[in-house]
């Protein structure tokens, strides 16, 4: 069992959990994730390790409530336990001094981006960050990201914070003003990673993306997470989650993410019906 040691609401629908998992904390490298099972009847879901503390024996997970399991996890209080936390899984990010790195993050993707940006900076790179979201409150970890970036830019769909528009607009301007960076790391919703990759492909800027396909075991056993990268079938859980954004078939990934839509909706409705009060509280999140 894996105890929840601390829990904090960092934005509407976003939680930061600190979980006791000494063995995982010791082995974690940026870019890796864990499979989490809340309880006996739960579903196994992948969550990126946003931070690890090998001395305290803890890992930090940042979770966005999008469906039944992530919403239910939001109801787990400090002191309760997760049935299984398995990892660290996936191939760590290749951190290297390349020169200038632009880190582009959106939504829950900002959480996994943070340790990568920090290590890129530590390796001697100049780090620019671009974070985007629908509205100001949904651009999470702003200060933490600013602390590891040489310069940081924000975009929101509604213009409530930073520049109004999409992260790609900011990225295009940054390239126009400062020249081509040596690497772009983009983590966020599949559609965001797709448009970033389309943009950088034109200028042949190497682009790393972290794919979020649906998973079960996370160890290469089921093939559920498979994606098409450069015409080859790859398993995101073992070959990834990071891939060359220019080679990923994003349209296919986006379609495959919709595989269980009716079931997800059903589970979500049932959960909301059972937890009406809590969910209403969560929605306002004051």
């Amino acid at each position: 069992m894996f105890p929840i040691i601390a829990k904090e609401a960092i934005a509407p629908g976003f939680w930061r959990f600190v979980v006791g998992a000494p063995e995982i904390a010791r082995k974690h490298r940026p870019g890796q994730f864990v499979m989490v099972l809340l309880h006996e009847r739960g579903e196994r879901i992948p969550l990126t390790i946003a931070h690890s503390d090998p001395v305290a024996g803890t890992i930090t997970l940042v979770v966005q409530e999008v469906g039944k399991t992530t919403m239910e996890m939001g109801t787990f209080p400090v002191g309760s336990e997760l049935q299984a936390v398995v990892g660290p899984l996936g191939t760590p990010t290749h951190i290297e001094r390349v020169g200038t790195v632009v880190c582009v993050g959106g939504g829950a993707g900002i959480a996994p981006l943070l340790p990568i940006a920090a290590d890129m900076k530590a390796a001697g790179n100049r780090v620019y960050s671009i974070l985007g979201g629908r509205t100001k409150e949904l651009v999470i970890l702003r200060e933490e990201m600013a602390a590891v970036s040489d310069e940081i830019f924000f975009t929101t769909d509604d213009g409530s914070f930073g520049r109004k528009g999409l992260v790609t607009h900011a990225l295009a301007d940054l390239i126009a003003e400062r020249g081509k960076p040596d690497l772009v790391v983009a983590i966020g919703p599949a559609i965001m990673m797709k448009v970033v990759s389309d943009l950088t492909r034109k200028d042949a800027i190497p682009t790393l993306v972290s794919l979020n396909s649906i998973m079960i075991d996370g160890t290469g056993m089921c093939g559920c997470c498979r994606v098409d990268v450069g015409g080859q079938t790859k398993f995101v859980c073992v070959d990834g989650p990071e891939f060359d954004g220019h080679k990923v078939d994003f349209d296919l990934l986006i379609k495959r993410l919709r595989a269980f839509l009716p079931q997800e909706q059903e589970a979500r409705q049932r959960f909301l019906a059972q937890h009406r009060c809590r969910a209403l509280e969560g929605a306002s999140h004051a």
Binding site: A259, Q263, E264
Partner: peptide, 9 residues
Amino acid sequence: FPNYDTPVR
């Protein structure tokens, strides 16, 4: 399902 959370299509 939905007594258990994992769906099958």
